[in-house]
Amino acid sequence: MSDDKTYLPALSRQVSELVLAGSLQHAEEALSQAADQQGDYAVAEVLSTLPPQVTALHLAGFDGSKTSLATLLVPPKAWAESLAYMAATWPDDLIEDDPERIAENLFNHVHGVVYATDDPERRAELLAEASATDYGATVFAIIWSLAPKEILEVSGEIIAKGPYVTGQTSSDSDIVPLALELAKASEDGWDRSLLELFPEFRHTADLADVELPEDPDEESKFMQRSTKELLYRLRKQVPSVRATPRRGTRKSMGTDIFS
């Protein structure tokens, strides 16, 4: 068996070069071979050392319909740091012409990683890490913007029922279960994502009385960032390659809803 001190850095460089060259399948094959020879730990170790922009490029090629070793084994912190760089992969014309399509792809990506395994502890850790930064809150706000009415219903249920929330809403949106999982994993992350979508509110409890118009084209009297606005907002939050992603200064004012 190869010495990890030489094998893993070499594999990390190989995977990075393959991803940057656009050879995602070959990168996956290299990870698969490593898993066979060294075990899943080696793959997770390599994924934890890849630059976040490389991880973003790699995982952007997979969604809920495609599984990969990277999706299954990416460490929560490494995945969380890569989310900001997803915005760098979106063409300007697509943001302008079809922002909902990008948001749906982002949902598929997040859903695919979070639900890649049946491990509830990993799921909670993924969501907590992913929502712990300003750009992470924006990522979830982009997803919530696809179903704002349902998100408000869930928010109201959480405020009213706390740990007894069922997540039942007036629609069968796939976004609702993810929202509920985030609220359970990180109350702070949930609050921050809601306030990113509805920036006029200082506290999520205020959202309980919000009623959005039935017609999505009708202007709401409550300020709500559009999907397009949030996509551009995330684009501005992409860290420089030299910058280390850090937790933002925004603070939650919530209470422990699931205690």
Results as ranks from 00 to 15, higher is better:
Asp3Lys: 14
Thr6Gly: 13
Tyr7Asp: 11
Leu11Arg: 14
Ser12Arg: 11
Ala21Pro: 06
Ala21Ile: 07
Gly22Ser: 09
Gln25Asp: 12
Ala27Lys: 02
Leu31Ala: 07
Ala35Thr: 13
Gln38Leu: 15
Ala44Gln: 12
Val46Lys: 01
Val46Trp: 04
Ser48Cys: 08
Thr49Gly: 09
Gln53Trp: 13
Val54Ile: 08
Thr55Ser: 10
Ala60Ser: 15
Ser65Asn: 12
Ser68Cys: 04
Leu69Asn: 04
Ala70Phe: 01
Leu73Tyr: 00
Leu83Val: 09
Leu83Met: 06
Ala84Phe: 02
Met86Phe: 15
Ala87Cys: 09
Ala88Tyr: 10
Pro91Ser: 10
Asp92Gly: 13
Asp92Ala: 15
Leu94Glu: 15
Leu94Gly: 10
Asp97Asn: 15
Gly112Val: 00
Arg122Met: 04
Glu129Tyr: 08
Ala130Val: 03
Thr138Cys: 04
Phe140Gly: 01
Ile142Cys: 01
Ser145Gly: 11
Ser145Val: 03
Pro148Val: 08
Lys149Thr: 13
Lys149Gly: 11
Ala160Lys: 11
Gln168Lys: 12
Pro177Leu: 04
Leu178Arg: 03
Ala179Ser: 03
Leu182Asn: 02
Ala183Leu: 02
Ala183Phe: 01
Lys184Asp: 06
Asp188Cys: 08
Trp190Tyr: 09
Leu194Phe: 01
Glu196Tyr: 06
Glu196Arg: 07
Leu197Phe: 08
His203Pro: 04
Thr204Tyr: 04
Asp206Gln: 08
Ala208Lys: 04
Thr227Asp: 00
Lys228Asp: 10
Leu230Phe: 00
Lys236Ala: 13
Gln237Thr: 05
Val241Asp: 15
Ala243Gly: 10
Thr249Ile: 13
Ser252Ala: 07
Met253Cys: 12
Thr255Gly: 12
Thr255Phe: 13
Asp256Ala: 11
